[in-house]
């Protein structure tokens, strides 16, 4: 009894820490609790939300064991290379947006397929496979952009940055639609349940007649797809492609996705959890800026929070078994 109580306390511990942080931020900053700040938080969260959807799919299909389970660290790199390809095509090569996006889609599909082949075909550890992939893709991005910023003035991209739909920022509305589609697919269909079963217990899924390898392959393709979609929002947020943005996005994506597990009632990675996690992480960044915390400290605090979340998840798992 005592042990279950302490396990439960441990499980709510990360949430409590975040609640305290927010209470502190709203006291310190007069503008933190306002509609304008909230919209800013959501807008800032958009690319992270989308790549976190991809990571959530991979973790759901691969299991939440950080080393042996599913993980895809190459999604931010995918988003960055897609953004670079689109920016380069639009601005330097003078091609249309449709052409640029198709080309970027091809690149994302190749990355997803290679990841899937490495993990399912060659049985590589996802962590190693996708980390190496990420490094390679970031390098390739530098080749394409010569490590320079490429501005974009395409009106569709500008609309995603500045436009409003029914009075709400266009990027937020579009992302919300995407979240609903992902949620429905992964949590409300047989296909999604089978993917969850695959990650929950590979043996149990196999015995129930589920083709587990296929679902793992699909999860990496979904992740690459999420990276591709995110690239458009990365372009909009930065008014073009800029090198070096993937590092922060990687950190926020991992934090958001696993933080989401702490928020979910079953303590597992879910899409809602990942979305909520991404918003919380973005709120922290905005909050820190609004009270004037040094940018370098922000990174340090975020890293410490990742440790906290992952450690409490590990202890909770240990207590359960």
């Amino acid at each position: 009894m005592n042990q279950t109580l302490s396990t439960k306390l441990l499980a709510v511990f990360p949430i409590a820490v975040f609640a305290c942080l927010f209470a502190y931020l709203s006291i310190e900053s007069s503008t933190f609790l306002s509609l304008g700040t909230f919209e800013l938080i959501l807008k800032q969260a958009v690319p992270t939300v989308i790549v976190s959807l991809g990571l959530a799919a991979v973790v759901i299909a691969g299991g939440d064991d950080v080393v042996a389970g599913g993980i895809d660290l190459s999604i931010p790199a995918t988003a960055i290379i897609c953004a670079a390809i689109i920016a380069d095509q639009l601005t330097n090569q003078g091609n249309t947006l449709v052409f640029a996006m198709t080309l970027a889609f091809g690149a994302a599909a190749i990355i997803g397929a290679i990841n899937a082949f490495l993990v399912v075909g060659l049985r590589m550890t996802p962590l190693l496979a996708t980390l190496s992939m990420s490094v390679a893709v970031v390098g390739l991005t530098k080749v394409i952009t010569s490590s320079r910023r490429i501005g974009v003035t395409d009106e569709s991209i500008v609309f995603i940055r500045d436009g409003k739909i029914m009075g709400v920022a266009a990027s937020v509305i579009l992302t919300a639609v995407l979240v609903v589609i992902f949620y429905h697919a992964l949590h409300r269909t047989r296909w999604g349940m089978n993917m969850q079963a695959t990650g929950g217990s590979r043996d149990a899924a196999e015995i129930s007649g589920i083709l587990t390898r296929r679902f793992v392959v699909q999860s990496f393709l979904i992740a690459a797809f999420a990276g591709w979609i995110a690239s458009v929002f990365v372009l909009a947020r930065g008014s073009g492609s800029s090198p070096g943005t993937e590092e922060n996005m990687l950190l926020e994506m991992v934090l958001a996705t696993f933080l989401g597990a702490a928020f979910s009632p079953r303590r597992v990675v879910t899409l809602w959890g990942a979305v909520l996690g991404a918003v919380v992480v973005s709120a922290l960044s905005v909050g820190f800026i609004s009270i004037g915390v040094n940018v370098f400290w922000t990174g340090c605090i975020k890293g410490a929070l990742i440790l906290l979340v992952v450690a409490s998840a590990a202890v909770a798992t240990k207590g359960r078994s």
Partner: peptide, 29 residues
Amino acid sequence: IHQELHLVQHFTVTESVFMGQEEQTLLGL
């Protein structure tokens, strides 16, 4: 009924019973 249980720890009873044979309509599960 195999010796090993082969169940997903964080699934509900319903989800476990219908694993691999879920019922769904056009609107979803």
